[in-house]
């Protein structure tokens, strides 16, 4: 067995936080372990409660914060132990993030394309502006955008969907082997969402990229992921093959989660789970 791509060994994260007077400690992540193999790229989904520590976990995998307990190993290297700028740049060539909120992902005061050029120059060794532009354009084409649409634009001039695709394009520039995507499609329409989610699957098959896919959308998680973990209050409550877990959840929270998924069909079925839609009023026809 070769060295795994990513290995989490009973990782925990505690924040000192809360109010001024209640110096409580928040255990955001508790005892989380899983492994992504290097030779079989996969889409690994993390779903769970809001505030259950998914983003905290992502930040530790990205080396943006260190684990309070346990170890995060990337290709056998403990992230807490690797230091220095060149080690960090090497790491970033292989692991890239895609963030939760496209409106925050780019500095509102700078042009979006600048991030793409910076990535190309710093991480792929593009020597001049035209090489950087070529790399940026190529990456943008992969997500259905082009440099002509993006050149010189500020984030507020683009819609959420355009921004998120630009962010994904930027992450693809160095040709990473792991993408950490924290709710990458939550701001995108259903149709485009499928385009991007299918793109993830394609990246996995074509470019051998593993993807850590954090989401609240159980349906896309079901469609594209290979394995899944379900988190609640910092702990993994259930994990396994994505399709099996989502089709037949075992843990009470997983069951609650699945039952809370709103569906179009469920809207008018008058079952107690939907939002009490038809019971209080008829939705047929226009109202006076």
């Amino acid at each position: 067995m070769t060295v795994p791509l990513l290995e989490l060994r009973s990782v925990g994260k505690t924040y000192a936080g809360g109010g001024l007077f209640s110096r409580r400690r928040v255990a955001a992540v508790k005892q989380v372990s899983f492994t992504l193999a290097a030779e079989t790229p996969e889409v690994f989904a993390i779903i769970g409660e809001s505030g259950s520590g998914k983003s905290s976990l992502a930040r530790m995998v990205l080396g943006m914060s260190t684990a309070s307990e346990g170890q995060v190993l990337f290709r056998g290297q403990d992230l807490a132990a690797s230091r220095g700028r060149s080690a960090r740049l090497d790491f970033m060539r292989q692991v890239q993030p895609i963030f939760q909120n496209p409106f925050e992902a780019f500095n509102p005061l700078t042009r979006v394309d600048r991030y793409l050029y910076a990535t190309a120059r710093n991480l792929t060794g593009a020597k001049n502006q035209s090489e950087a532009e070529a790399a940026a354009d190529q990456a943008l084409q992969q997500v259905g955008l082009s440099l002509t649409e993006l050149r010189g634009r500020f984030p507020h001039e683009l819609s959420g969907g355009q921004l998120q695709r630009a962010a994904i394009a930027r992450a693809l520039i160095p040709g990473p082997s792991l993408l950490v995507a924290d709710e990458p499609v939550s701001m995108i329409d259903a149709s485009l969402r499928m385009t991007i989610v299918n793109l993830f699957r394609e990246l996995r098959d074509r470019l051998q990229v593993s993807i850590l896919y954090i989401t609240h959308d159980l349906a896309t998680a079901y469609t594209i992921s290979d394995r899944i973990v379900i988190m609640r209050q910092g702990e993994v409550v259930e994990s396994g093959d994505a399709r099996a877990v989502l089709a037949h959840p075992q843990h009470p929270y997983s069951i609650q989660l699945k039952n809370s998924v709103l569906s179009v069909e469920g809207a008018w079925n008058d079952d107690d789970d939907a939002l009490a839609h038809g019971t209080t009023r008829s939705t047929e026809g226009t109202r006076p």
Binding site: M64, L89, N101, N107, N122
Partner: peptide, 26 residues
């Protein structure tokens, strides 16, 4: 703590660049 700072870091910018080009305007 804002996401774009991380975005810049993962674009390979060093601390000096992030501070002068991303944070200075604020």
């Amino acid at each position: 703590t804002r996401e774009f700072t991380a975005q810049s870091a993962f674009s390979g910018m060093n601390a000096g660049e992030i501070v002068t080009r991303e944070h200075l305007p604020y």
